[in-house]
Design a protein around this nucleic acid. Structure first.
Lengths: 196, 196
DNA sequence: AGGCACATGTAAAAGGTTACATGATTGG
DNA sequence: CCAATCATGTAACCTTTTACATGTGCCT
């Protein structure tokens, strides 16, 4: 039941609709907790029932009405309790690595395509994160930001996301090179013991 | 339904019991796919029913009997199909980062403890991975291993795990320092505009 | 005309966690 | 003597994914 704590942390920034949160928790944006809109709408209802958040309806004319949620004092207390409580280990589930683990020489072309795709995704995510970082720093140095700003949490988690995607790219490039070298080596007449 | 493909990849190494696999998929060992023993026993049954793996019972005297599972030709085909199929994005769920994101100055001591704990886990995991790497290389250079050995998948995924834990340590140490500096700065009389 | 952004949901199915259950052997 | 390792499962519960459902406004 940690999705609710991720939502509470997100609401520290201010009011948000389910739709707003869905964007933040989207797989292509979130770097440490993801959730689908369906999960969020249901969880927001439960959290409202439990008094952790409060909702107000904003009527809009050219758009559907929306419910804006904000954290309550009880919600803040729940978040503090969560932070002090024991932490579960990180869950990583990466289909791509299952493919790498299980690949055979015959799978080389498919695996190369998977790695190229991964590099593309990681680069796109990294670019987004870097833009976000620039916006947060707003001209200040990292040193200055870390000592001056009130909440450094979002900046620190962003740094973790940036490091993760950089490592992704570095590793995928290395693996791609290794696999390609084997493919060309296997075909290269120079490597044959007995020339044809 | 990707657990089954992770199991198939694991069985490329040779026969394994549910218990053997449970050790490999344990949270403290696995670096890209985890599963509890309960999940595995159930999935192994289904996979046997689907003909992806075959089981044989080994009777033991001083231990409970065990069922050793091996991949079938149909299982190999399923794994190849999985590798060629589209890949789902990586799922990361890290409670610790939720805590970092949602922390307030009052949570500093708890957050520091969480970071210290994480560094300890990451170091333990890293040590295990490094030992595993040494064993795999068996004296050869990485270059030599990558061009000579038949299956490089497990080595490449291991490298990803090593990089992940190294990044974990580096980032956690950085964050810990940042948080501690703020704490001491807040208490340090030198920083006061008006000395007491 | 077609697609994306906004905005909210329901329902069924699949997947994952936690608690319970058993019992011998080995090592410190 | 206590803890860990070996070895397998059942059952209840909770979480997550996927498919379905609706409708307006804006931009190209």
């Amino acid at each position: 039941m940690a999705l609710r704590h991720a939502v509470l942390a997100a609401l520290l920034d201010g009011e948000a609709s389910g739709y707003d949160l869905a964007k933040q928790f989207d797989a292509s944006v979130a770097n440490f907790w993801m959730a689908t809109p369906q999960q969020l709408y249901k969880e927001l209802e439960r959290m409202t029932a439990d008094g952790l958040i409060a909702a107000r309806v904003v009527e809009q004319e050219k758009r559907p009405n929306k419910r804006l949620h904000s954290i309550t004092e009880s919600g803040r207390a729940a978040l503090r309790a969560f932070i002090a409580d024991s932490t579960k280990p990180t869950v990583i589930r990466d289909e791509m690595l299952v493919k790498i683990q299980g690949m055979d020489s015959g799978d080389a072309p498919a695996v190369e395509a998977v790695l190229v795709e991964r590099i593309g995704w990681a680069e796109a995510k990294l670019a987004r994160y870097e833009r976000s970082r620039t916006r947060m720093l707003a001209g200040r140095s990292e040193q200055a930001y870390l000592s001056e700003s009130v909440h450094i949490g979002p900046y620190l988690t962003l740094l973790r996301g940036i490091a993760f995607e950089q490592e992704n790219i570095r590793w995928a490039q290395f693996s791609l090179d290794a696999i390609r070298r084997r493919r060309t080596a296997a075909l290269d007449p120079v490597d044959r013991l007995v020339p044809p």
